[in-house]
Design a protein around this nucleic acid. Structure first.
Length: 923
RNA sequence: GGACCCUUAGCUCAGUUGGUUAGAGCGUUUCCUUGACAUGGAAGAGGUCACUGGUUCGAGUCCAGUAGGGUCCA
């Protein structure tokens, strides 16, 4: 048996075991026929990403779940992989190209550019997956997927073809969110509303025919201009009307008249009436610019107005913006437009203004509403997707997120799935040569002579041109739970065990992608996986666990751009992977955000060290007997030597086991880690191991006492492994828990609390639940004795003498434990007295304890001390008496509570009486 | 504007169906290097559980409102 070193050094242990696990294929997701499965698909990180604290938390949770499932004997399968992350990756490579070669993607052409992206991916991709190994993640690496792999791509294209065939996909010219930096359309979900400071411009539009109106006092006043306000004067040249509310009495007589457009070509534009105008905003008139605003576009549609597009794709103004602005960048043009309007007398004032402006989540710039041809998806199975969550087939943890989910589905809009990018799945649509794509009608889309939609393309490719656009990244990742299990290829599905592992069990992710990903996966699962099967077999997962967001000390989200995320690999070096994992989970309550605190990670490391040393001490305490199975250890227990401490620690062990069972069922990881911590540190190390030292020195009791420790440590390692796989594996091996044929901890099944209790009982020693109470009394005696020493300024180590004044029953309880107690409190001896002694004293549940300090008692100090104690007790007595005197309480409180209060009162009264006697005995 | 979350010790946070004197880690004070661990042990200090009202025999916990902080949707 190798000796355990003085302190835990994680790094070597981690590398050694991870290699061994991989070598032995410990993480392979393989299900025996009929075996219960537990499947998790990893939220695929960006292929070029690196590990940050968010994914550390997220993957640690998944690893804990999957490892626990393995220990429970389930076929656990954790599927890893990465996402090609269309815009993010393309942007990254474009930047790199610009920097190193001074070229843009168009300089290279599509094919060459894509080659570069693949090279980039091959060189720098999957880094994050390697980092997950450092963390100890037990993914089935042989199942690693990438959303651009051939098999996965086939799934993506197949899903498009299927949805197109069913009429869910159409092409349409609509207002989209346009990113002028990435030069692509974005889905609504990729647009982030940000409060943005700018100006609002109050303008006058001159009426072609001057008119009149009535003012607030009823006087008729001349009206030569319409007043309106806009934040975007640069688009005025694209105005096609001015709208007022139909019931706005100030302007009804103007409807049908015209105003002069103040910028661009000097033309007349009509005044129209539309319900969408808010008469309370500004002066109640609205400039209508259909090309550059969603509401304006809708107004334009209703009134059959023309559309003038004054912007280029890259956000610069075109010739329709007027000669003064053409070619300018949009924000410069805004300034310029204001200047021109000022000169022409159209600008009344420019006021500072803050409003919400849609920004591209990726590029961080304001998006432009833009009218373009795009591919759209009408979501399939929307109603069913609501039902599966409402009916609990899919459970969200915490449950409240289901409301957010349902609310989104209630207001769902068609999904713009095309992107004007190159890096992604090129849409499997071919246009017949000569067909004008801009003018395709709904009927044309269904005409196979004009449009070809298939996986493999047309048989006569020379007559067709493929669509340039690629699919939104999320239109590939929404297939993740089944495309990673071989869908849609039957052979691949059989090989991957699709039927056993789908539906997956738990999805662990952040609530920030509930719309992007979670909701869409549910709809995709219902649509594609196991067609025709009952709904519970089509859903992609049964549980969704939303982990919190890891924030920095100031509460800010950790992000690359802020640079406020510590490098997890540094933390692993500093505290060990187990320390990092355990520390992080301690502060990750169910679905609450976590403010990262490195101290907690340090405490995680400290806990590992404590475990390490406890095991080291066990090894030093005596020979390691047969630990190779639960039965072997149980056989070493001697029912004749079972004492209260054994009963109490085993009861706590069972309770901890039970707590962990519940914690895992409820996804309460913080509760689980806290229980493990307090059980091992407080119950086991601080008390049990300490009191057992006495028995370990007794040749008769030694074997039994060590067997109890071995039993506790064994079960603890099994419970702890999902959180700290490395140190537990190492100790499992060092302490001889691994039988010859089962080398790894994961090869042993975790006993349930019930099974373990039964196994212990079968040894003839059922756990005595009353023992814990007696041990608790002893703990109090020890604590009070130490307190007394501290108060009397007696150094801890000094072996003083205690006397106890106690009734026979109390004395017997004490006497039985006198040796332990003496060791615990640092006493040479604990003797009995039948009289009050002129010594400092403390009243304990097992009698009055006198401390022989060897110096003369300071009566005044002692009186003060006892009086203070008596005051406290008296206060409590008064409180309890008042409660018990309340008839409402005694008649309504449950018996257990009542009984507790009565006992407490009796105890406190006895204590008060004793304190009074001690006081009166003081000279 | 709608929805949700948070507010507990100096700091970061637990506190699961309401029930004795509200807990942990870090920090802090005093003592201890006694053969597992100073990455440790012992003893302490530190909290009107944001505020107001309500329900209840009993509220950190349930309800309503207020204030402050945060998130999502429009």
């Amino acid at each position: 048996m190798p000796e355990i070193s003085k302190s835990y050094e994680p790094r070597d242990v981690e590398t050694k075991w991870y290699a061994a696990w991989q070598e032995a294929k410990c993480f392979a997701g393989v299900a025996a026929p009929g075996q219960e499965t537990y499947t998790i698909v990893i939220p695929p990180p960006n292929v070029t990403g690196i590990l940050h604290m968010g994914p550390v938390l997220n993957t640690t949770l998944q690893d804990a779940l999957i490892r626990r499932a393995r220990l429970e004997g389930k076929a656990a399968c954790w599927i890893p992989g990465t996402d090609h992350a269309g815009i993010a990756t393309q942007t990254m490579v474009e930047k790199h190209l610009k920097k190193t070669e001074g070229k843009g993607r168009r300089d290279l052409g599509r094919e060459e550019f894509l080659k570069r992206v693949w090279t980039w991916r091959d060189e720098k991709g999957d880094h994050i997956l390697k980092q997950l190994r450092e963390l100890g993640c037990s993914c089935d690496w042989d199942r690693t997927h990438f959303t651009m792999d051939p098999g996965y791509s086939k799934a993506v294209l197949a899903s498009f073809v299927k949805l197109f065939a069913k009429g869910h996909i159409y092409r349409g010219k609509r207002m989209v969110n346009w990113c002028p930096v990435s030069l692509t359309a974005l889905s609504d979900e990729e647009v982030e509303m940000r409060p943005t400071k700018g100006h609002i411009f109050r303008l006058r539009y001159e009426l072609v025919e001057p008119s009149a109106t009535t003012d607030a006092d009823g006087n008729v006043v001349p009206l030569t201009h319409l007043i309106l306000e806009t934040t975007r004067p640069e688009t005025i040249a694209a105005d096609v009307a001015v709208a007022v509310h139909p019931s706005d009495a100030r302007y009804t007589h103007l409807v049908g008249k015209s105003v002069w457009r103040p910028l661009g070509e000097r033309v007349q534009i009509p005044v129209i009436a539309d319900e969408a105008v808010d008469p309370a905003f500004a002066a109640g008139a609205l400039k209508v610019t259909p090309a550059h605003d969603k509401v304006d576009f809708e107004i334009g549609q209703r009134h059959r107005l023309p559309v003038i597009d004054a912007l280029n794709a890259d956000g610069t103004m075109n010739e329709f913006a007027g000669p003064e602005l053409a070619g300018m960048e949009r924000f410069a043009a805004r300034k310029k437009a204001a200047e021109i309007l000022q000169e022409r007398g159209n600008l009344i004032e420019a006021k500072p203004y803050e409003n919400n402006v849609g920004h591209s989540q990726r590029a961080g710039v304001p998006i432009e509403p833009r009218l373009t041809q795009q591919w759209w998806l009408r979501y399939p199975h929307v109603e069913e997707a609501k039902a599966v969550v409402r009916d609990g087939l899919i459970q969200m943890h915490p449950e409240r997120w289901s409301k957010v989910y349902l609310n989104w589905l209630e207001n769902i809009q068609d999904w713009c799935i095309s992107r004007q990018l190159w890096w992604g799945h090129r849409i499997p649509v071919w246009y017949a040569k000569g067909v004008d794509r801009e003018k395709l009608t709904e009927a044309d889309l269904r005409d196979p002579t004009k449009i070809h939609v298939s996986l493999d393309g047309p048989s006569d490719p020379e007559n067709w041109i493929q669509e340039d656009d690629v699919l939104d990244t999320w239109a590939s990742s929404w297939l993740w739970p089944f495309a990673t299990l071989g869908w849609p290829d039957a052979d691949a599905q059989a090989k991957a065990g699709f039927n056993q592992f789908y539906p997956t069990t738990t999805l662990a992710t952040g609530a920030d992608i509930i719309f992007f990903w979670v909701a869409r996966m549910i709809m995709a699962g219902l649509e594609f996986a196991k067609p025709g099967a009952p709904v519970e077999e089509r859903i992609p997962f049964k549980h969704v666990y939303f982990n919190g967001i890891v924030r920095d000390k100031q509460g800010r989200k950790m992000s690359k751009t802020l640079g406020n995320s510590p490098d997890p690999l540094d933390l692993i070096v500093k505290y060990g992977a187990d320390g990092l994992r355990f520390g992080l989970l301690q502060i990750a309550p169910l679905g609450q955000d976590v403010k990262f605190d490195e101290d907690r990670i340090e405490s995680g490391k400290g806990f590992c060290n404590k475990l390490w040393n406890a095991c080291r001490f066990r090894q030093m305490s005596g020979p390691m007997s047969d630990n190779s199975s639960l039965a072997a250890i149980l056989a070493r227990l001697d029912p004749a030597h079972f004492d209260d401490d054994d009963h109490a620690i085993l009861a706590a062990l069972l309770d901890t086991t039970r707590t962990l069972e519940k914690s895992f069922a409820d996804f309460e990881f913080a509760g689980a880690t806290q229980r493990l911590y307090s059980f091992f540190w407080n119950d086991f190390c601080d008390w049990y191991v300490e009191v057992a030292k006495t028995r370990v020195q007794d040749p008769l009791a030694k074997d039994h006492a060590l067997a109890v420790q071995d039993l506790v440590i064994r079960q603890f390692l099994l419970l702890f492994e999902p959180f700290a796989p490395f140190i537990t594996e190492e100790l499992w091996s060092l302490l001889g828990y691994a039988p010859a044929d089962k080398r790894f901890l994961q090869d042993t099944r975790l006993e349930t609390a019930e099974a373990l209790a039964a196994a212990i009982a079968a040894r003839g020693t059922p756990i005595d639940p009353a023992a814990a109470g007696r041990v608790e009394q002893l703990k109090q005696v020890a604590s009070l004795a130490r307190q007394l020493k501290t108060e009397q300024s007696v150094p801890q180590k000094r072996d003083v003498k205690f006397f106890v004044l106690a009734h026979q029953a109390e004395w017997l309880a004490l006497e039985k434990n006198a040796a332990k107690l003496a060791r615990l409190v640092g006493a040479a001896d604990i003797g009995r007295t039948t009289d009050k002694l002129a010594l400092p004293a403390v009243v304990t549940p097992l009698g009055t304890l006198f401390l022989d300090t060897g110096v003369k008692i300071d009566s005044a100090a002692e009186r003060t001390r006892l009086t203070k104690e008596l005051d406290t007790v008296t206060k409590h007595i008064a409180g309890t008496e008042a409660r018990l005197a309340n008839e409402a309480f005694t008649s309504k409180a449950p018996p257990a509570v009542l009984e507790g209060a009565r006992r407490q009162l009796a105890d406190q009264r006895a204590k008060a009486a004793e304190l009074q006697r001690l006081l009166s005995a003081l000279v």
